[in-house]
């Protein structure tokens, strides 16, 4: 059995870092050593930032985003178009859309997609919140920004049924050739979708 080379505090730091995505035990050890070497400029501020985040971060009860206030900064922003509601699977998707600046709408985070294999059923997702938000006066369009996977699109069709009785237009993201994509390397499904959804040039 390998002998520990550091005290329990450092071992605990390494163990916790190793739980982060992208880090294994070896890279966690390197990260811990780097933090210790930069104690004043990195370890201290990081520890403070993490403590503040742990104390203040809440999930927005309106959209499901994470922020330090409820409602979150996006739900409070008066410049956003209240007529458009963008439905995303996860907070990371919301952040990706915000990074792109492609849409200035409000959001709703579902918290996953339907997946019989993983046992994720409608009652596990925020469909109740979605129907409530889509029923609000002034909402005219619901954009389903879900992954182009079988599970993502099954969820999209489920939502379309769910919102069928509401006077809102339900749209989804286009499927097709990505920027920088070469036709020769695309799968048949993407090519078929791109041909089906071709636009005038």
């Amino acid at each position: 059995m390998a002998q520990s080379v550091a005290g329990p505090e450092i071992e605990r730091l390494i163990q916790l870092l190793a739980r982060l995505p992208g880090l294994g035990p070896r890279s966690a050890r390197r990260a811990a050593l780097h933090l210790i070497k930069k104690r004043e400029t990195l370890l201290g501020p990081l520890s403070d930032a993490m403590r503040v985040a742990s104390e203040r971060i809440v999930v927005c009860t309106s959209c499901g985003n994470v922020d330090t206030s409820d409602p979150c900064i996006i739900c409070r922003d008066p410049r956003r178009d209240p007529a458009i509601l963008v439905v995303v699977e996860d907070v990371s998707d919301l952040w990706a859309l915000e990074r792109s600046g492609a849409v200035t709408a409000r959001y709703l985070v579902l918290g996953g997609v339907l997946s019989p294999l993983d046992g994720i059923r409608p009652e596990h997702l925020n469909f109740e919140g979605l129907v409530a938000r889509a029923s609000e006066p002034g909402v005219a369009e619901v954009i389903l920004a879900l992954n182009a996977t079988v599970d993502g699109q099954t969820t999209a069709h489920y939502i379309t049924d769910l919102l069928g009785h509401l006077p809102v237009k339900v749209t989804r993201l286009a499927h097709g050739v990505p920027v920088g994509g070469e036709l020769d390397y695309l799968d048949d499904g993407t090519l078929s979708a791109a041909i089906r959804q071709r636009t005038s040039f």
Binding site: P116, L117, A148, V150, Q153, T154, H157, T160, D161, H175, D187, D188, G189, T190, L191, S192, A193, R196
Partner: peptide, 28 residues
């Protein structure tokens, strides 16, 4: 290695997607 990739085609049809989920459940 992919041979016949129809998932993209299925994604456009709710009937195909719900059928596919049922097929997978039965085969499982």
């Amino acid at each position: 290695e992919g041979m016949t990739l129809r998932a993209g085609e299925f994604m456009a049809s709710p009937m195909a997607l719900f059928g596919l989920a049922t097929l997978a459940h039965l085969l499982r």
